[in-house]
Amino acid sequence: MATGETVIEARRLQKRYGTVAAVDGIDLTVRRGEIFGLLGPNGAGKTTTILMLLGLTEVSAGELQVHGLDPRRDPLAVKRRVAYLPDSVGFYDTLSARENLRYMARLAGLPRAEIDKRIDESLGRVGLAGAKELKTAAFSRGMKQRLGLAEVLLKGADIAILDEPTSGLDPQATFELLDIIRDMKRDGIAVLLSSHLLDRVQAVCDRVALFHQGRIVLQGTVAELAQQVLGGGFSIEVATAGPVPAAALAALPGVQQVVERGTDRALVIADRDLRAGLARAVLAAGGALLQLVAIEPSLDVIYRRYFEGDHGYA
């Protein structure tokens, strides 16, 4: 299921506001049944890209196909097959959760006889079955986000685009939300989600695209990116009782960099698993080894390392 048919394809996609390019020639491919993450800081062009995919903003240049359709030419057909959860989603405060969803279902043109049943179903899936008659004015941030996901499920689309689904949520709510997103993947829905919190979404994404100033600077699985940026990337954290013998560690063959973190801690980046060698080197330098941990490559580190290089982090 991980690699199916291509559902979203963008080539040299561009969006300009006057002379400023908000999205500057990106290439993107999303396949059925995968969770694809658009990651990057605020203002990097993630939301603009999403709006172009939905046909909600004009495309300045480039090719774009969603389910083989052009959102510029067939916006209704595209929007029928794509569900969207916007950044900081809002609802009609004077209507109940069920009424809010019913309005959207009518707009989406779902068959009338099925609407109520499907609303109950989708509210149940996001754990809001007990709150369906409540006015959304009383909803917390997390509940609104879940109601937004219920709307996505309700539509029964095979592409779900979620813009910053976890922003502003506490860890527990984030965890639950990511679970629902994993469920969607299990149902064969292609999920495209954006986030500026790299680590939060790393856990669920099959592939990611890192945005920076309107461009995609890196694209692939997290492991591929680590390989590409960290150079085969093995990060090992070394903690010692006294000062870290940084020079001795750096001299070890295979070590690419030693980043000191305080006097008694260092991050060693190597091209292979050097834990045994590092332990020996610490002992040989007369240090007392407390901890030696191989760190899973995190997107945060990859992103920061990428821009620490000659790419310049603005």
């Binding site: 916006p75 209704l76 057909a77 029928r80 969207y84 989603v89 809002g90 989406a108 043109g109």
Partner: peptide, 14 residues
Amino acid sequence: NRRTLSRVLAQPIY
């Protein structure tokens, strides 16, 4: 202001 516009326009309507 209620942030409902993008949700409404993401439905298949003009």
